[in-house]
Measured scan of single mutants.
Amino acid sequence: TTYKLILNGKTLKGETTTEAVDAETAERVFKEYAKKNGVDGEWTYDDATKTFTSTE
Rank of each mutant, 00 (worst) to 15 (best):
I6M: 05
D40V: 13
L12G: 08
E42R: 09
A34V: 06
T2P: 04
D46A: 03
N37R: 13
K4D: 02
A34F: 02
A48S: 12
K10Q: 11
A20E: 04
F30S: 01
T1V: 12
T16F: 15
K36I: 13
T49Y: 04
A23Q: 12
T16W: 15
W43E: 01
E32P: 01
K35S: 10
T18K: 03
D47V: 10
R28P: 02
K50C: 05
G14F: 15
T2R: 12
K4M: 07
D22S: 08
L5W: 05
T11D: 11
D47R: 08
A26D: 00
T25K: 05
D40I: 13
I6F: 06
A20C: 09
S54T: 15
K4L: 08
A26S: 01
T55R: 06
L12K: 10
T1P: 09
D22Q: 02
L7I: 13
E56Q: 07
I6Q: 04
R28E: 07
K31D: 02
V39M: 09
K13S: 10
K50L: 08
A23S: 10
T11W: 14
D46G: 01
E56C: 07
D40S: 10
A34C: 12
F30V: 00
S54F: 15
N8P: 02
V39A: 05
V29W: 14
E42M: 12
L7N: 01
I6D: 02
K31H: 08
T55L: 06
E56F: 08
E24Q: 12
D46W: 03
Y45L: 01
G9F: 15
K31S: 04
T18W: 10
Y33V: 05
N8I: 14
V39S: 04
K31W: 05
K10W: 11
R28S: 08
T49W: 03
E56R: 04
T49E: 05
T11R: 11
K10F: 13
T55D: 08
T55C: 07
T18H: 07
T44E: 10
T51V: 06
W43P: 00
Y45H: 00
T18F: 14
G38H: 08
K13Q: 12
T17W: 14
V21I: 14
G14C: 15
K31M: 08
A26W: 01
Y3P: 04
L5C: 12
K35V: 10
K50E: 02
T53P: 00
E27W: 15
K31I: 08
T16P: 02
T2E: 10
K35H: 11
A26Y: 00
T17I: 08
E15K: 07
I6V: 11
L5D: 03
G9V: 04
D22R: 03
K13T: 12
T11G: 09
L5T: 01
T16E: 05
T2L: 14
K4Y: 15
D46S: 06
D46Q: 04
Y45M: 01
T1C: 13
G14Q: 13
T16V: 15
T53F: 10
K4A: 05
Y33H: 04
T1L: 09
Y33A: 02
Y3W: 06
A48L: 11
K50A: 04
T49K: 06
A26E: 00
E42A: 11
T55Y: 08
Y33D: 01
D47Y: 08
E27Q: 11
E15R: 07
D47Q: 10
F30D: 01
I6R: 05
T18N: 02
D40E: 13
V21D: 12
D40M: 12
E32Q: 09
E24P: 09
E56W: 07
E24N: 09
E24G: 09
T51D: 01
K50W: 04
A26H: 00
T25Q: 12
G14K: 14
K13C: 14
T53H: 07
N8L: 13
G14Y: 15
D22T: 06
K36M: 13
K13L: 08
K31Y: 05
Y3D: 04
E56L: 07
W43K: 00
